[in-house]
Design a protein around this nucleic acid. Structure first.
Lengths: 337, 337
DNA sequence: GCTTCCAGTGGGAGCGCTCCCAAGCACGCC
DNA sequence: GGCGTGCTTGGGAGCGCTCCCACTGGAAGC
């Protein structure tokens, strides 16, 4: 039984011809649509197999006006912030959820002007069925583009200031509050804070949480000491802190990288963690476990964030109207506090 | 001057009509093709602006038989291996290079059978213009799919055993050799190795490099002690090593995560790094700098790997025939050795 | 003055699929 | 026995773009 020669690219018409049916019937059979007799359905399946037919997604997209792809856009001047494992985990979650809906994942790193222009084009041209937007800053041009997008947009984390129609976020305020309360419950009274960038909503919200906890315990919050989420900036901030407030006995850092930097500075200054200074971070990515001592930190459900963004987007693409989501955090207590 | 009402989605025909030209001319003007008079070109540009026209990429794709997208496929049972910052850096590099060629990046995490099936469909259906394949294991089903792909395929790292027609790799053997030689040059004579998974080419090649260096120096190589590239497996391997060979004075670990694990075990066993045991890693990602002490490690140009893969793919898509590439590594000497 | 040439132009045929619709046909019902 | 009724079926019109090709007229060549 000679299989048909693997011709370059059979079309649906050829399948139909071979199966002895019309293109319409072949199409219906392929899509498991009703109104196809058992016999013809099987004939089509046979022809598909013999010809090694694979539908052309582009043609299908043109006809259905659905691309079968969703885009994840990560904003940020410096593309290397993307190297943060945070995004990798988001992607893992989003990818899994999109797989379930048979959507492909397009990844756009909107770093340069060129990159942003391409994202804008994508959003205006229906080059995808929907977009997930992350890491927007204050006055990020992507915010405007999102308004004019010709497709559903889901935000990952709220942009500074405004809450968009659809978003998935992590409870930054609650997490920061819990972290700070943990330090206080350990008997620390001079608990300082190393903030993330205050032009991001996450940076602001985490400072708010810290502040709430301090005020709630009748303590004086320290003024925001701003880092940029890197290990280096955390180390620098900690050095400034030790210089200005030598009696500090607790530090809440707005992410693990900065906490790791703080750890290093404390160590180099000859003080012990947690005996002299207790440190709590935020994220609970790999860095927290590698750190010495292992970092007590606010665990945020990063893969879930990606997954829920994707699910929300799928819902929107299917014409539903999901509600925004704020995912809970929880404190992972380790040695540093 | 009333801007045209922002209709839902103007087509090229409407642009042509408004500009008073035929669709052909409008198309040519849009694509900067020749044979368009200056006047008509400007008329088209004006119409585009007034209508807010954006070309439909799907229609264009159907007509040109080019999707305008390239896929990066990452193989691996456990999707969380993708959380390794390694891939993030590859993506940064690839994304930048694809941007230059105006290609979009599709990301496929081929973890489940379902995911692999989707990748196969993508490759057989011309759902992308080309594919970059990474992290293949021995007998990885993706290898076969790649053979049958209807589009160019570039490998990132060679698959076990065979060298494909087009690939970009890092000089794993040379890097591992250099790392080991560094340890030997420090006077270490009992230099052990913690390998990566030996069902990956990188794992094997790095062991080969270690072995070469040892033999070259007239030393007995240790048998391969296999880890799986995780911090935990590195710690466990180091524990086994200390138990079986208490006199070991140098360790080459096939990646930084495992080296970090080894560091932890050595520290917990009350020995000093590098005084008692010197450790060298491989990768030079973030972990190497956070480690305590900072890790001497083989720096591999990860972003360049992604960039070169993408460039090679672009060349292939453009009908050229590029040659495989092996990128050099260099030793980053820090405190651990 | 008459070819020759070519930039400029628009008509029209696809690209490969979906989906609406009218037609065909075997039932079963009154 | 006439006439719905409902399942199958295939024709054909798109989806929005590219690109081949035939046609025009004015500049250049002899």
């Amino acid at each position: 039984m000679a299989e048909a020669a693997p011709r370059r690219h059979p079309t649906l018409d050829e399948v139909a011809e071979r199966a002895g049916v019309s293109r319409s019937v072949a199409s219906r059979a392929l899509n498991n649509a009703p109104h196809v007799s058992r016999a013809k359905r099987e004939a089509v399946e046979r022809a598909v197999r013999q010809l090694g037919y694979v539908p052309n997604p582009t043609a299908r997209a043109l006809a259905t006006r659905q691309t079968g792809a969703a885009a994840l856009v990560v904003s940020g001047e410096d593309p290397s912030i993307f190297a943060d494992p945070f995004f990798a985990r988001v992607i893992v979650g989003a990818s899994a959820a999109l797989d379930e809906a048979d959507l492909h994942l397009m990844l756009c790193l909107a770093a340069s002007d060129r990159g942003r222009k391409r994202v804008e084009e994508l959003m205006r041209s229906r080059g995808a069925d929907g977009v997930m937007l992350m890491a927007l800053r204050e006055d990020d041009p992507l915010t405007r583009m999102a308004d004019e997008a010709q497709m559903p947009v889901v935000f990952g984390g709220r942009p500074v200031g405004s809450a968009p129609r659809w978003y998935v976020d992590v409870d930054n305020v609650g997490g920061a509050r819990e972290a700070t309360e943990h330090l206080i419950s350990l008997g620390r009274r001079r608990v300082a804070v190393i903030c993330g960038r205050l032009d991001t909503e996450a940076g602001r919200a985490r400072y708010r949480g810290y502040r709430d906890a301090m005020l709630g315990a009748g303590l004086d919050p320290y003024p925001p000491l701003e880092g940029d989420f890197t290990e280096r900036s955390g180390a620098a901030a900690m050095a400034a802190l030790l210089a200005g407030h030598p009696d500090v006995d607790g530090v809440f850092a707005a992410n693990d990288n900065m906490a790791a930097g703080a750890l290093r500075t404390v160590r180099e200054a000859g003080r012990r963690v947690p005996a002299d200074v207790a440190v709590v971070g935020f994220d609970d990515l790999m860095a927290a476990q590698i750190a010495d001592p292992p970092l007590t930190t606010v665990h945020q459900p990063v893969e879930a964030l990606g997954r829920e963004m994707a699910r929300m987007l799928v819902a929107l693409v299917n014409g539903q109207d999901p509600t925004p989501l704020v995912l809970p955090t929880r404190l992972a207590v380790r040695a540093s506090a």
